[in-house]
Design a protein around this nucleic acid. Structure first.
Lengths: 229, 229
DNA sequence: GTTGCTGTTTGATCTAGCCCAATGCCCACG
DNA sequence: CGTGGGCATTGGGCTAGATCAAACAGCAAC
């Protein structure tokens, strides 16, 4: 854990509310570890005894149905924490997690963290904030799956990647298209075609590099129910 | 608030973790109130200054999109609390709420509750439990929308209503079919047709009463991806 | 270079569920 | 006891996206 790593850990929504001395107190125990792409971190149903901070790379949260289908619920990125709500309860993970790129993570043990919280009510407040943020994001995701078309969902995804840029922009797709497709609730073939359908809106794709002529146009497209034009 | 009401309030997951004396302490402030069917309780974007306990009736949580479409995220029933996570943060409600039947609710003020929590870390733990339960339920909902067919989602809904009964069973649909349809992510027409398609599995419908010949058969149907019979 | 693997694209077909519209059923109200 | 307004069902046509299948590109190992 070098200083840059520390900066990331301290700036997560979960821990940023933590008094500095408590964070320091944590310092000794935390170790960053590198994972290869595709490493499983935990499985749904397992005892939830830890949560994670991502220093580098991407991690997917997914569920496997009884007949082997995989549904990706979320893909977390550098600087985000995941599994904290499940861990906190000391129950079981409701979904599985695995890295989707090579990654560096910090694993934070649940027991240690829980006992700290009992003495630090303010910590619980940050936990609640984090949980509630997740809640909101899931709520939004449901809305999107239900009311947006495939191209709109992709457009929205790209907008998020470009994160507030204006005018023309270039973004890299951070992981395999098949995974993005799953995350957006569609099949890889549909993703490919839907992405192609964004070309008239000034979106061109070369391998995993996406070039957007005008962000505003894309944003407008996401908003409209797309009856025509 | 008669004793039966109290029993309900005390047995919510959120408050059951609360020490009895604290609950007593609350007693003075709480008032049950009756609402007509269709009464809005709060709107998305409003300051989240309270949460609710349902003593009687049903409440829907929904989002209205920019073009007026409504997506129902959840329908809560008697004995459940809602909006606690949003309230707790003191931020804004991420969705709207309205009664879908005549109802009796207890409204619990956020400020009062928040200050109590600061002194009672254990309370925060129950809050977290509640939040995490919601999280899990949303996660499951996303999985269902993505991988289950319309008839399967309905079957699942019925199974939940019948809550563990075995063999033959009879259940009442608790509110309008259109609302159930929305909650399950489909149109009323689709709901009607999909429900009819469950007849071969021993499900018959008469107005809002559903008769199931064999719960096990329905449960099996939900599991299989339905490639064929 | 060749082989093989994995991920992506493209094509052709099929279908679940949406849209639009009509009709029917029930209950409330005069 | 009629009549009107909500909800529910039914019908027909349509389109988005799934499915099945094949071609294709990049990359690693040999």
């Amino acid at each position: 854990m070098d200083p840059a790593d520390w900066h990331i850990v301290r700036s997560t929504p979960l821990l940023s509310g933590m008094p500095p001395d408590i964070v320091q107190d944590f310092a000794g125990g935390l170790v960053a570890r590198a994972y290869e792409k595709g490493t499983p971190l935990f499985h749904q149903g397992q005892a939830a005894d830890a949560f994670f901070v991502i220093l580098e790379g991407w991690v997917k949260i997914y569920r496997t149905t009884s007949d082997g289908l995989e549904v990706v619920l979320h893909v977390f990125k550098r600087g985000e924490t995941f599994a904290e709500a499940a861990m906190f309860l000391g129950g079981r993970y409701p979904a599985s997690a695995a890295t989707v790129s090579s990654a560096r993570l910090v694993r934070i043990d649940g027991n240690a963290f829980r006992t700290r919280i009992r003495n630090q009510p303010e910590l619980a407040l940050s936990m609640l904030a984090a949980a509630s943020y997740q809640l909101k994001s899931l709520v939004e995701q449901i809305e999107q799956i239900k009311v947006r078309s495939a191209p709109q969902r992709i457009a929205e995804f790209i907008l998020r990647l470009a994160d507030g840029q204006e005018g023309p922009a270039i973004v890299d797709l951070p992981f395999e298209k098949g995974l993005i497709a799953n995350r957006l609730g569609m099949k890889p073939e549909s993703f490919s075609r839907a992405l192609a359908r964004l070309r008239p809106l000034g979106v061109s794709v070369e391998r995993d590099v996406v070039e957007i002529a005008d962000m505003a146009r894309l944003a407008a497209f996401v908003e409209f129910t797309g009856d025509d034009g």
